[in-house]
């Protein structure tokens, strides 16, 4: 490096991304990370498959409780939340595109938008759905206190509902924290760019899976009666 070069602007961190010693290149590391993430996503699907199976079993056993129970849910709120999550998936996909094209400003805006959509989802879920229902006694299992139930076994419906949406909601929360971590990397460390966006990609896959799960939970809980 000559003295003339010394005056040039410092090159961004993503220009020569480091990779772990046991990988021969950053590209190889990226592929390995991605396969690892997909493997993790399969375990996530298997986790949720237990919940879907629980839904299937109880629905086959007590169809009338499920029919009555799903009418207690507001499908408009469910639709709003579905739209919010789909929009967040779109902004997350945009994050990767922005990183690939080195649009640093839009990358940060899209990351924050994704977190905001996740926040709206949880807000609607908790404030407009969980809290009023809980207050009326529509609670899972032995906590059930709703006096106007039309069928027996309705507490089982609420168990399935709180369990499935609760585990999903927890995943939304974890996803939001992960996206904030990516935002910190993008804004403070400025480490994501066309040659390095592994973190954005991996967290993005996680976020899309959370959306994917909701795409199936929404009709199962709100629309099938």
């Amino acid at each position: 490096m000559t003295t003339i070069d010394a005056g040039k602007a410092k090159e961004p961190a993503w220009e020569h991304p480091p990779h772990a010693e046991h990988f021969r290149s950053h590209a190889e590391e990226f592929d390995a990370c991605k396969i690892g993430m997909w493997l993790f996503l399969t375990t996530e699907v298997l986790l949720f498959s237990g919940l879907f199976c629980m839904y299937a079993i109880f629905r086959m056993m007590y169809p009338e409780a499920f029919a009555a129970g799903s009418h207690h849910l507001n499908s408009t709120l469910g639709m709003v939340n579905t739209i919010v999550l789909l929009l967040s998936s779109f902004t997350m996909a945009m994050c990767i595109r922005c990183a690939q094209l080195n649009k640093q400003g839009w990358l940060k805006i899209n990351l924050l938008l994704t977190v905001a959509f996740g926040g709206i989802f949880l807000f609607v879920k908790i404030v407009f759905e969980y809290m009023p229902k809980w207050a009326l006694g529509k609670r899972p299992g032995y906590l059930f206190e709703y006096p106007y139930a039309e069928t027996n076994h309705e507490q089982i419906w609420w168990s399935v509902y709180y369990c499935a949406t609760g585990v999903h909601g927890f995943h939304v929360l974890v996803g939001m924290i992960l996206i904030l971590w990516v935002f910190w990397g993008a804004s403070v460390k400025k480490k994501y760019g066309p040659k390095h966006y592994t973190g954005v990609e991996i967290v993005g896959l996680y976020w899309h899976l959370v959306d994917l799960i909701w795409i199936f939970l929404f009709p199962l809980l709100y629309l099938i009666h």
């Binding site: 998936s89 779109f90 896959l205 899309h208 795409i215």
Partner: peptide
Amino acid sequence: LVLMFFMQ
């Protein structure tokens, strides 16, 4: 659609 295009 999500798997194919958002998750690429």
